[in-house]
């Protein structure tokens, strides 16, 4: 691989890494090193795990040119299943987590099946399933906080592996596996091919329906992982879980370099973008600004990122195809 193509293809990820490092150092120095204290660092890293995984859950659907509005509701229902299984039915922790995980995967599969069957955009289908799932979540949790389950689960969530929170390690491991899936397996390549150019994919023998189904199911499975991380890192489960997932699920992959049009994944970009967003959050707390500032900033950044990538794309198209394409 030449350096030129390496840099050209990894531009976003490289710049994000630099932003992350610079931002982190700036926060460390302005806080007189408080951020480096054991407790702050622990907090910073622990709450990075969920944004990473839900970012990937959205990314796998974005890569086929669709979207999953139901990530939050699916996560809410999945954690609710886990919590009620343990609290009300006294199911053991691993079984409850597995049931919740499979539940999320099944919800993703249903989304996928509906999109394939109705041939409609994933947006409107997941808007429908989101509404249904929110109802299911409220039914399961009602207005309570469910925390009557063995404390070994929250303890598990506080574990560290060589200084890193275990749940962050789980999130990173998931991203490594996902990255392998897209770059190194036939199935992963086929899903990406569908997103990149459905017609070309079909002529190359890819079943686009299968790709769509796989992407949505995978999204569900990732939400299941996020649910496991959530329930392990919180003292209890209530109906607000998942309510604020939508923003971060879109912003991390989009800032990380995933094209809305489909055909790309950027696992590392998504992870590092989640880190940058987390830094904004920390900075907000440090300067005691209103939480709404974060959403404002992220909104503006997302918009500029997409505008920039679109501008770059059009520039390369112009350079390469001056003589061929006829855009109307």
């Amino acid at each position: 691989m030449t350096f030129k193509s390496f840099f050209r293809n990894r531009m976003t990820e490289l710049s994000l890494t630099i932003i992350f490092i610079v931002g982190f150092l700036a926060l460390v120095s302005t806080s007189q090193g408080v951020l480096l204290s054991r407790a702050s660092l622990q907090g910073f890293l622990t709450y990075l795990a969920v944004p990473i995984v839900i970012g990937m859950a959205q990314m796998v659907v974005l890569c086929i040119g669709q979207m999953n509005l139901a990530v939050g509701a699916m996560g809410g229902v999945s954690t609710a299943i886990m919590a009620t299984q343990m609290a009300d039915h006294k199911v053991s922790i691993p079984v409850a987590l597995l049931v919740g995980f499979l539940g999320a995967t099944a919800m993703g599969a249903i989304n996928g099946a509906l999109v394939v069957l109705t041939q409609l955009n994933g947006f409107i289908i997941t808007l429908g399933t989101m509404t249904i799932l929110l109802g299911v979540q409220y039914r399961l949790v009602r207005t309570f906080t469910i925390d009557k389950y063995p404390t070994s689960l929250p303890d598990f969530g506080k574990k560290n592996i060589v200084g890193f929170p275990l749940i962050l390690v789980i999130a990173i491991a998931t991203s490594v596996v996902l990255s392998m899936y897209f770059s190194r397996t036939g199935s992963g390549r086929r899903v990406l091919a569908t997103g990149g150019n459905a017609l070309a994919a079909r002529l190359s023998g890819v079943s686009n329906s299968r790709s769509v189904f796989i992407a949505h199911t995978l999204s569900g499975a990732l939400v299941g992982v996020a649910a496991i991380i959530t329930i392990a890192s919180l003292p209890g489960i209530n109906r607000s879980i998942g309510g604020d997932w939508m923003l971060s699920s879109f912003s991390a992959p989009i800032i990380g370099g995933v094209l809305m049009a489909g055909g790309t994944v950027a696992v590392y970009g998504t992870v590092i973008a989640a880190g940058v967003i987390r830094l904004v959050d920390i900075a907000r707390a440090q300067y005691s600004l209103d939480p709404s500032i974060v959403s404002l900033t992220v909104g503006v950044v997302v918009l500029s990122t997409v505008a920039l990538s679109e501008w770059r794309r059009r520039r390369t198209v112009r350079q390469n195809e001056g003589r061929k394409v006829l855009p109307a």
Binding site: F250, D290, S295, G299, V302
Partner: peptide, 17 residues
């Protein structure tokens, strides 16, 4: 989709603020 989504985020922050 993405423009209005980002607009939504930005306005959410603005309104609360």
């Amino acid at each position: 989709f993405i423009v209005t989504l980002a607009m939504d985020f930005a306005l959410l922050g603005f309104v609360t603020y």
